[in-house]
């Protein structure tokens, strides 16, 4: 096992199909799509449950159920039902990111100082204004930590796309294993890990940027 594959310049040619940059891009594309769709689904549900306190069992059970679902098994089931393609992969990955986002949105709102929420109503904010101007900005630190953990999971798990014939960094793992090219497998593992670290760094910066400094001050 060695790093030859990773450091071979030929594998970094952007024009070559199956090169590391191309796989990286397609991998990132699955990740971004799954996170976007997952957020669009999970965030409103989590916020609704957190804001109203109605249906909190959904938030709690979704968290537990989601964590215990094997993504690969779900992907195979989806492929059997829907055939090959991007859709089954996206469904499987989206199911993965929904629980952490939903749970953190719910928990973020529930953990707020209710006296502040009460004050927001008391000064005359409508429910929607309470949510968008007070609850959401205050819950952002918790929400972002849920989003970051979803992102880390989906970066690692998006490798399953290769198992059903799609691209992504999983190709390096699966093709490498198929031809006993462990140097290629290692390259795949390293690039996935580096991507995860970089993505988390970017999100950490985004978090610093969107979270009010007033919430960072320690009392």
């Amino acid at each position: 096992m060695n790093l030859d594959y990773l450091f071979d310049a030929a594998h970094w040619e952007f024009g070559t199909s199956g090169s590391i940059p191309q796989l990286l891009l397609s991998h990132l594309w699955y990740v971004v799509l799954a996170l976007a769709i997952g957020t669009v689904i999970a965030l409103p549900i989590g916020l609704y449950i957190g804001h109203t306190g109605r249906g909190s069992f959904i938030a709690i059970n979704a968290g537990n159920a989601g964590r215990s679902l094997p993504t690969l098994g779900l992907l195979m089931l989806m492929v059997t039902l829907l055939g090959l393609g991007l859709l089954p992969v996206l469904i499987a990955l989206t199911v993965l990111v929904i629980p952490p986002i939903l749970t953190s949105a719910y928990a973020g709102l529930r953990s707020l100082d209710q006296r502040v929420v009460d004050a927001a109503r008391g000064v005359g904010m409508r429910p929607w204004q309470v949510l968008t101007r007070v609850e959401l900005p205050m819950a952002l630190p918790v929400l972002m930590s849920g989003f970051r953990s979803a992102a880390l999971q989906v970066v690692a798990t998006a490798t399953v796309a290769a198992a059903v014939g799609l691209g992504g960094l999983g190709r390096l793992l699966i093709d490498g294993l198929a031809v006993n090219d462990y140097s290629r497998v290692l390259a795949g593992a390293i690039v996935v890990a580096v991507l995860a670290v970089l993505l988390d760094l970017v999100l950490a910066f985004a978090q610093r940027w969107i979270v009010s400094p007033g919430l960072r001050v320690s009392r």
Binding site: A119, R121, G124, R126, P137
Partner: peptide, 23 residues
């Protein structure tokens, strides 16, 4: 109207209830 009524009434609570994310 609840919200309009409240905007016309100053409301001060114990521990101030300030919005921590706003200056």
């Amino acid at each position: 109207d609840e919200a309009l009524l409240r905007r016309g009434i100053g409301y001060v609570i114990q521990h101030a209830g300030l919005f921590p994310h706003r200056t």
